[in-house]
Write a protein that binds this DNA or RNA. Structure first.
Lengths: 171, 171
DNA sequence: AATGAAATTACCGCCCT
DNA sequence: AGGGCGGTAATTTCATT
């Protein structure tokens, strides 16, 4: 299975664009939107899955509506680096949604969605029991203005050479 | 429309647990897993949608496989507060996946997925053009160990009173 | 265009107020 | 008696060849 089996054409992108917003379309409906017959569309989607472009389809749950009104991002400073088995154990907690190692002043970035601030305290307490965890910094979400999965589109705009006369620095 | 129309029972939670992992099960299959007939399961799912527990279903795209290998979290310092129309314009960029206002030393937290580091530069450049944006700090993901949507489960573990003898502080 | 599977509706019965 | 909920059967829509 090659890494980039085939190139995506315009129709593939439109299919991905539709499916990442609403995955429960019928193939007939999806085909109509992209200008293909149902079976042809089905074939495309099967290919996109086989090529690993589409990893699967999931239901989007509403955090507050299922009892998890609190969203937080936790930066973690560790003494060691990367994937420790102990750290990976946290993965079993359904409250943990993301775990990335990142560049910058911290090593690990976690995204957690919790029942309450008490649960956040419980989570941090759990985190500090992991050997190698030095310190944490938490950012609690006050409002979420946008939250969605990977989008198919790509902006030309961002690839333009930035105007050097404007200039910016990260401190 | 009441905020919490009905309470979730054990079967609802199991349905949510299945669907947030794999939303393209047949109702027959899903029903088998939770111990209900297909129509009864369908009824439950319809209710969970109507009550806003399930917001929709989406395809999970693979970032690298669709040409976006770079994931970054950008903390933004703004002079004003909250939702400015100018900031909300960024929402149109498919590279922007999340935007939250957060507690802590920065005001806004963004999640972006991009084609390249050049595109990240382009994005930051675009960001600095928004009035009120003072400074940014970017965390680029080196490895993603876990990335998933809202999970249905809730850990009892985190609600236990933390052992006060351990103790921890956020600096 | 045809076949088989699945979603969806209709309708009936049970249980617990 | 009635409302909520689940089961079976019938129908329509959709996936798949």
């Amino acid at each position: 299975m090659p890494d980039t089996p085939r190139l995506l054409d315009a129709i593939d992108r439109r299919i991905l664009g539709e499916l990442c917003q609403k995955a429960d379309l019928s193939f007939a409906e999806l085909g109509e939107r992209v200008g293909l017959s149902a079976p042809a569309t089905h074939e495309r989607v099967k290919r996109l899955r086989a090529d690993g472009r589409i990893k699967g389809t999931t239901a989007q749950l509403d955090g507050p509506a299922i009892g998890k009104p609190l969203l937080a991002f936790v930066h973690v400073d560790t003494s060691g680096w990367g994937k420790s088995p102990e750290l990976m154990n946290l993965t079993e907690l359904p409250e943990l949604e993301e775990m990335h190692s990142v560049t910058g002043d911290t090593c690990m970035l976690l995204k957690v969605r919790l029942q309450s601030s008490q649960a956040l305290e419980g989570f941090l307490s759990r985190l500090y029991k992991v050997t190698g965890v030095r310190a944490t910094r938490s950012y609690v979400a006050l409002s979420t203005y946008l939250e969605r999965g990977v989008q198919a589109g790509i902006s030309e705009e961002l690839l333009e050479t930035p105007d050097p006369s404007i200039g910016f620095v990260e401190p």
